[in-house]
Design a protein around this nucleic acid. Structure first.
Lengths: 119, 119
DNA sequence: TCTTTCCCATAGAACGTCTACTGGTGTATT
DNA sequence: AATACACCAGTAGACGTTCTATGGGAAAGA
């Protein structure tokens, strides 16, 4: 039996933005980043490892973050990511984009039975 | 010269929902659907033909809409799409999902400088 | 006739996410 | 000492949506 359909597909291309935002608080490693996002979203967002690490690597490729090896709070080897100046700019770009998207979609989704319930 | 990066990628997987919502107003053909979404979003959303028609076809495959050939307002042959009962249900599912997504991402994106201060 | 506008459609590439793994290493348990 | 477990990083391959870039037919107007 084959599972042909994805279960979640819930991030909708916003993972990069979420990661950058999380790093505003300071450097963090992958595990922590995922947990922070999940907790702050009240467990609505689920960050899969297979999504997270590729995201971190491409953020670094693009220069939005830099990384270094360190030791985690649990005394384990971990790669920490730090927001760069370019990443900070990118975050505002993506946040603005997201805001305008939400607004635009909201405009389309609002019920247009206004005619019936007009003030 | 090759354009290696996509220009927009602005729909973020919400096109199906937008199309279904548009059809709540009544049957419509592809061109109209695209224009309605673009206008209602104040031209923020851009619906490419290469995104729209595949979307309409998959909505039909899944039973969310049904289609028939007719004649457009401009006297041209056009395929009209109508929302099915299943499509109406699907719309509420996707709309709820979208709402919870917006809320969850909002929770992550809000500034948390408060936490940094209380040290 | 020629051009424009309307309308449908598809192929192929790009991209982000998911599933499903592998592998290493501290810490606690037995 | 051996085992189990939680923590941490990573990759391959599939999948689905969107994009770019086409093609073509048919009505309307110049």
């Amino acid at each position: 039996m084959v599972k042909s359909k994805k279960e979640q597909e819930l991030l909708l291309g916003t993972l990069d933005m979420l990661v950058l935002q999380t790093l505003v608080l300071g450097p963090a490693h992958g595990h922590t980043i995922a947990h922070v996002i999940e907790q702050r979203s009240d467990e609505v967002l689920q960050i899969e490892q297979g999504s997270l690490y590729p995201a971190l690597h491409r953020l670094e490729d693009r220069g939005w973050v830099s990384s270094y090896w360190g030791v985690s709070e649990n005394n384990r080897k971990a790669r920490f990511y730090r927001l760069t100046a370019a990443g900070r700019k990118q975050l505002t770009v993506e946040a603005n984009r997201w805001q305008s998207m939400v607004k635009a979609i909201g405009s389309v989704m609002q019920n247009v039975t206004r005619t019936a319930e007009q003030k």
